[in-house]
Design a protein around this nucleic acid. Structure first.
Lengths: 225, 225
DNA sequence: TTGTGCCTCCCCCAAATGGGGGAGACGCGG
DNA sequence: CCGCGTCTCCCCCATTTGGGGGAGGCACAA
């Protein structure tokens, strides 16, 4: 079973390069090449590739939009690997949200590219190590990017952090008092301190902050309330 | 500059196997091997490795706890790759939260393992493709689990959903009124409906719900307020 | 036509919240 | 010893919030 591949890049030379590398593999076949986003959508509909190598920067329609459109409207078995020349930063999240299964830099060694294609065709996902790192950071809430948040966070005392955590659980002052075994008045004080130290207005904003800075994470609480 | 490596696995044969593969690389040196979690912590403190290959299942102290402890208490330059025999499922999130930079299956081909070590030593992260896929799913919010949430969500009218989105931005009723160009009284009505329909008590819980159900996502707003 | 649902706005009122003070107790370091 | 930060609790008070009603307009379907 050979893998049908579509290569999309506005630079013909780059396109040919990738295509040749992949076509050289016995179990891979480049069924089409496109130079623009709209062409890519066209080609994808016509050829139903297993894997699409997609550049981001392209005239007419960029790779991210093309990806989203292809994955939304067409078969869900197609996997997309986003290729980019530059430091993966702003585009990554858009790409992943668009449904990409891979995000690699163009300076990837040929054998790694081949491996990436096989991986995503197999249902896996392959990201540039930097991207993976950042994704983990997001998930674990440990990594920087939240640097500014972290600084704001450690303005809080230990107790105040506990209170913020409780706020992020959607608890009222009374409930916080009970879980921390302190008086309601004390909770009020702590909450006030949290708000003023973090420059927030109310507990709702505190909840937002808790999620954004990674103190609270999606999936850690049940919203049965 | 040669990479100093620590291999941790309770099975001596497996341990030796990985160690030999890595020691064979000219720029890598296995400085120690450990058979238990506590030994690993000891060895890490003594040898200060650049990269630790860590098995999960071990007597005395499992690899996840050992990882967390090492990364918490010791130098932050050490990178940990978690090795597991089994289908990566429950352990993944614990591993990432513990601070691991890698999560790979033991049946990884030797050259990939070597590449993984270089990648994490270089500041990147390397996950099994399956894990990466799942992480992306989490991030993109596409993954189900939110089924119950989705049901609750579509009890809301369009307008009410807009209001909930605004709530998730930490906006007050007055601000919501302005952004939606309606009266403050109307906002009150909508908020009340949102709360009662979703069975929530206050706007703080509404914010939590918005994040948990994927209506609001981390990184989509700046918490400058 | 007669609902029925949605959006809009109004009233009143009780409860929670947030801000401003102050104060006592404790521990830690100068 | 004294200051400083932290945790604990208290007071007063303005504002916000949330719940209970009601009501008009509008669109859409029975």
């Amino acid at each position: 079973m050979t893998l049908r591949i579509l290569v999309v890049d506005d630079q013909a030379l780059v396109r040919r390069g990738f295509a040749m590398v992949l076509d050289n593999e016995p179990d891979m076949h480049v069924v089409a090449e496109s130079g623009t986003g709209v062409e890519a959508i066209e080609a994808a509909r016509e050829h139903r590739p297993d894997v699409i190598l997609m550049d981001i920067r392209m005239p007419e329609l960029d790779g991210l939009q093309a990806t989203a459109q292809i994955l939304e409207t067409q078969s869900e078995s197609t996997r997309v690997i986003i290729l980019t020349t530059f430091d993966p930063d702003e585009y990554v999240y858009q790409a992943l949200r668009a449904g990409a299964s891979g995000f690699v830099l163009k300076d990837i060694p040929p054998e790694s590219l081949v491996a990436a294609v096989r991986t995503v065709a197999d249902g896996g996902a392959m990201l540039d190590p930097t991207v993976t790192r950042r994704l983990i950071g997001r998930f674990a809430g440990t990594l920087s990017a939240d640097q500014a948040y972290a600084e704001r966070l450690d303005r809080l005392t230990e107790r105040e952090t506990e209170v913020l955590r409780a706020l992020a659980d959607g608890k009222s002052n009374r409930e916080i008092a009970e879980t921390l075994c302190i008086g309601a008045a004390t909770v009020k004080t702590h909450v006030s301190n949290v708000l003023s130290k973090l420059d927030l207005r109310d507990r709702a904003q505190a909840v937002v902050f808790a999620y954004e800075c990674g103190l609270a994470r999606v999936g850690e609480r049940d919203v049965g309330f």
